[in-house]
Design a protein around this nucleic acid. Sequence first.
DNA 1: TTGCAGGGGTCAA
DNA 2: TTGACCCCTGCA
Length: 279
Amino acid sequence: MEGVKDFSPTHTFECGQCFRWIKEGDGSYTGVVKGKAANIRFHDGVLVLSNTSLQDFKDLWYDYFDLGRDYSEVKSRISKDGIMRKAVEFGHGIRLLKQEPWEMLISYIISSNNNIPRIKNTIKTLCRLYGAEIRFAGGSHYTFPTVESLASSSIEGLNICGGGYRCKYIAKTSRMVRDHEVCLEKLAGLSTGEARSELMRLPGVGAKVADCVLLYSGTKHDVFPTDVWVKRVMERLYFHRTARFEEIQSFAREYFDGLAGFAQQYLFYYARENKMGVK
DNA sequence: TTGCAGGGGTCAA
DNA sequence: TTGACCCCTGCA
């Protein structure tokens, strides 16, 4: 696809919204989405996806990369002050991916009180053990495990993936989703508050994980996932004091007016890459 | 090499 | 509101 603006694979894949895109030696990225493996490279407004038909591009990738959205407008609307202008300029190529809610749910349960290398390893192992193999570009890649495959696996089996105490959350959550106790397909039809409460009924899912699932699946863009990094940077740049989570969330919702999720993503990337969240 | 602190939160008391 | 929690990583 030509004439793509406001896009950088590095910004998009390294800004913290996904764990499974792998950077290749030539700067391109390889990943698996909905059972399709592909390699993506971007140069001078031209987006090249290998291993992809025109039909796949229309049915899958166009939506996945949120290519129908005018990010210039989003960015100008959230650039409300000097801080946000800097953050937006720094991460100018970020696009919020529309990933599968199920994959986001399990991935962000794993992310809690955890570090990034370990999160990535755990997800990778989970996919290798419970996903389906895809041969692509001379290597093995794996789909994200289905609800059924995780729900029917034993705790002992899941423990091998290295998720620690989160494995029991994965087991219980998988079974609840399989049994339609919580229906991920219905989240989009609920209000943001209702969708959040619904997700938080699942074990291992608190406010932060619920917000990540809603935002990174493209279901709701008015949430403001508040982790320690976002909390610290908001305290430092906006509050100039310690602030409570609820305080930060309500400020962000009001201040960014429905686009809080986009603002959070530029801020998080800016803060983390510049080590602004270190204590 | 060995040892230790800490990590993109959640849960239970 | 506070502490425990699996255990992998990174760094003395």
